[in-house]
Design a protein around this nucleic acid. Sequence first.
DNA 1: TAGATTGTTAATCGATTAACAATC
DNA 2: TAGATTGTTAATCGATTAACAATC
Lengths: 219, 219
Amino acid sequence: MRTTGSPTAISKQALQRLPYYIRLLRELRENGTTVVAAPAIAARLGFNEVQVRKDLASMSDSRGKPKAGFIVEELINNMEETLGYHNSNDAVLVGAGSLGRALLGYGGFGECGINIVAAFDRDPALADHSLCGKTVFPIERLGEICTRMGIHIGIITVPAEAAQEVCDALVEAGVLAIWNFAPVRLNVPTDILVQNENMAASLALLSNHLRDKFQEERP
Amino acid sequence: MRTTGSPTAISKQALQRLPYYIRLLRELRENGTTVVAAPAIAARLGFNEVQVRKDLASMSDSRGKPKAGFIVEELINNMEETLGYHNSNDAVLVGAGSLGRALLGYGGFGECGINIVAAFDRDPALADHSLCGKTVFPIERLGEICTRMGIHIGIITVPAEAAQEVCDALVEAGVLAIWNFAPVRLNVPTDILVQNENMAASLALLSNHLRDKFQEERP
DNA sequence: TAGATTGTTAATCGATTAACAATC
DNA sequence: TAGATTGTTAATCGATTAACAATC
């Protein structure tokens, strides 16, 4: 349970499950369900019952009623609060290549409490044009614009070679959290969070699974 | 250490580090480095030394020489073998929206041993056209084409509501490993691997980090 | 009350890190 | 030899799951 003002750290794993909870709870609210029990949530999401109870306890102030469950609306509010959803989380994206453009055009981030307000690219041909409704600025203006707009989230979608340099510039400009799509590990000060969206890692798991499958067939 | 023919299961975490190792080793090879020691790798990637030694032992047959290290070329070959890199890992993508198109256009998968050979979409307007050099087929032909081409990897980039249905069709068509970008948990038979590329989860970690930062400032 | 559900303490599991003998 | 590095066994850490008393 989190007491107001002194937030208990929520485990990384639990935070990663949070979007699944929020999504389900919003769906329940849509359908007019006002109360839900942990075992029901666990069944729907394929999680362990105890895990759900612990997650709810750590991510929400509201307690459940034995035999009944939790109030859906309360859980949603508490979880959104945990995400800092009610703050404006403005972000900039660096690297307007194919992946960068896809993220610019993806509408689903608002739901997660993130709003991409501008993009940057090294290529002068892209500069000052608009992509998916967001202006692309030349990379040289990164520091100035981030500082002025008070941006705290940076998204890196540049090639591996340029990633560290871009990362340094973002940190310099006051960014506190970085979502890194480049397949390299970034060096940052300890108080900056880097979240690696490691596509190659996912592919490694897929590939290895297949290799094992095929090796099973002819042992 | 993995003895040929009876592959020891490599931990999920280690597999996720594998792409970082391969990337670094390939870079070393480019530069003409033929031998590398575990502590050097650890320093470059920011990993723990023991972790690197254990990872190398589990992902590669080749042993290191005390005082010297490992032969770069051998490590690369063993790791590529672990990924099943030398097999052809053909994949299909379902859902040619903005994210789907980005993945179709992304050139970096070859390096990871994956090759997207076709795409599918529900929208008839897209059908039988070509996007980024890959033909988009109507979703109805998914089963037929996957079976005929012997596809074992499916990439799901459809909206959440359609994901389970698409997943079922892929499994039915013989797919063994699924890369799921939809923000829902999929139900599959136990021998099918689902790897969730959970963007919302990453964003949850970023958002929560920022919330904690801001709460620190005014306690 | 009886039975379902909660919240928490204890046990288990997997991964990481520390310690150390063996090797070149 | 001396010193760096390997490979492995033991200790630690964090997360998951099991067990159970408290509650409605």
